[in-house]
Design a protein around this nucleic acid. Structure first.
Lengths: 340, 340
DNA sequence: TTGAAAGCGCTAACAG
DNA sequence: CTGTTAGCGCTTTCAA
């Protein structure tokens, strides 16, 4: 089929070892022969067989990225960052997506034992202690993104701070009846965002009211449109006692919530102000004030850390948490000049 | 490091050939020994080394998917379909993304010569004749999705029909001054959508006016927000002569166009009706009437065809074009009961 | 420096 | 049926 290292060797009139040295920038080769070999390589348009190289080198030049597809579109930015950075290292990305039917662990197991990849990136997905320990013990490179485990490298976002800022923003605007629509508490971002919300209330001497807190129970993890829609409906059914502002723990839920508000014939922000979390692309079109997560940067950093692990340059545990920042649009009553 | 086939063989007290047979469901093995081997495999939690397997079998169990990230979010659905289907075949997906700095051809070359994958899926990206011929000649499995080349398998969408239906819809609503905002004509979807638009006008005895046609010139290929924003501005600057309805060749451009319309203080659909193309998730929130493309199904089919090629079951050229269908929301003056 | 040869871990052909 | 052996295409000693 395609040419092998033997074809190149023959053409250049050298041994295969020499060809290999030429390819791998091995110094143990004279300039002349190197040129000769390179010439043969060019003429044959020879490319080393990736698998054979991988087998011999004991490294694959591939990393796995496991993402949850049901999470919505917010990981796209992350993926862009990952891709861009990964190609700098001349690595390839294998994408595994997890949905309700496939469990994360299948892929973790695969990634760990099949030797197909040199490392893995786990996105927005929980890893249980058993696997965390496995990875940790085996020293197999892994970094968690938008997920946290004490034993592993992780890159996260300041969920608590973000929720605090979001809630604080509502308070500064004069609101005191502030609700929250959250995802399932089994996810740690959901827990932390709840903490931030509560802390902001407390710091401002506003009493936390159970009835103002909605924990979505629809769908996978509650971070979806339908959940936001239902959640807001429940809040609106409180009638005169309903909150005048709501912190919603994801933009996608906020989108559903907006629909519910519209169906009730209410207006945003006059009747009810909302602030979201994530800053997905859609947020701009919804005019949604929200907490921006630097997904692209997180993706980049994740790759850098993973590469440091793979190359063995740096084996220390690494934890980084990015701050989120408030993006003010129209859903809280502010109206800044729109950027195009 | 991790166990090899030799460890299993030793443990089971058989030769490595027998282990291999057990793994690969080779019939030339007695049930008893197979059980014995499988037991050893389980105890060792042995997993065959993917690269070694690939090298020996001359197949990698991986396919490459090359996507343009600048195209926006519409390929996410496609990716979901691809992923879901690919895992049924126990294949892995390598994702390459092309942006302005990397050219498609780098990846095509890689995919073709590096033997890292058994086949490739090219998404929404043009392939030049030279490469098309290369792939065609080499018999290397490739299928184009949302892109077309006569020499290769391709799965597309009926762009012309879609544009026709979209324009026709506007005409039926009574519009006669109908504009179009299109992407760069170098992309074939853009060309075909223009044809469909023109044909609809012609069939209804409406004169095509050059001034009503905007070819976006901003950004990569014109299929982006900014392009839609600028395009709509130019249309609105026509003043009283401006169109009363516009067919916009992608939802993402429509999003930009909507912004422009709002800035002019005009209302949709009263002052100007618009219909988009793609039906990306955001369209629902924009209340955008648009042409829906069955991305998920396209992704599935693409994988099925690719696998048929890889397995050699079917080597005929395959062309399939999916119909798009009109999704009526609010941007044209219809208002159907909202689905939640 | 260079060529030859020994793996990397597996599959498949070949004897038995 | 089963064990042995020869590759798959490359990297990396080891002598020369």
């Amino acid at each position: 089929m395609s040419d092998t290292i033997y074809d190149v060797a023959k053409k250049a009139g050298v041994g295969i070892g020499t060809v290999s040295r030429a390819i791998n920038n091995n110094p143990k080769i004279s300039p002349q022969t190197k040129i000769k070999v390179l010439k043969a390589i060019n003429e044959l348009k020879y490319q080393p067989h990736a698998l054979a190289q991988g087998l011999a080198r004991k490294k694959t030049s591939m990393v796995a990225t496991i993402v949850p597809f049901f999470t919505g579109y917010f990981f796209v930015e992350l993926l862009r960052g990952i891709q861009q950075e990964i190609s700098k290292y001349r690595y390839n990305l294998i994408l595994y997506s997890v949905d309700q039917t496939n469990k994360t662990e299948t892929f973790l197991e695969k990634t760990l034992r099949e030797n197909r990849v040199d490392g893995t990136l786990l996105i927005s997905l929980r890893i249980n202690d058993k696997y965390a320990k496995k990875f940790s013990d085996s020293n197999f490179p892994i970094v968690l993104v938008d997920s946290y485990h004490p034993d592993l490298d992780s890159i996260t976002v300041e969920n608590k701070q973000g929720a605090y800022v979001a809630t604080q923003h509502l308070i500064q605007l004069g609101h005191t009846k502030i609700g929250m629509i959250n995802g399932q508490l089994k996810s740690s971002p959901a827990q932390l965002r709840l903490e931030g919300y509560k802390k902001a209330l407390r710091d401002n001497n506003i009493l936390f009211k159970e009835k103002y807190l909605i924990i979505s129970d629809s769908g996978q993890d509650g971070f979806n449109r339908e959940a936001g829609y239902q959640g807001m409906k429940r809040l609106l059914e409180l009638g005169d006692n309903k909150p005048t502002a709501v912190f919603i723990s994801s933009d996608i839920q906020a989108a559903g919530a907006i629909r519910a508000i519209q169906e009730y014939g209410l207006k945003i922000p006059e009747d009810i102000a909302i602030v979201g979390f994530d800053d997905i692309e859609m947020a701009e079109y919804l005019g949604l004030t929200t907490m921006h997560q630097p997904m692209f940067e997180m993706g980049k950093l994740a790759v850098q850390r993973l590469m440091a692990k793979i190359s063995g340059e740096d084996s220390r545990k690494f934890k980084k948490s990015f701050l989120t920042n408030l993006v003010i649009r129209e859903s809280c009553g502010f109206s800044r000049k729109m950027p195009t």
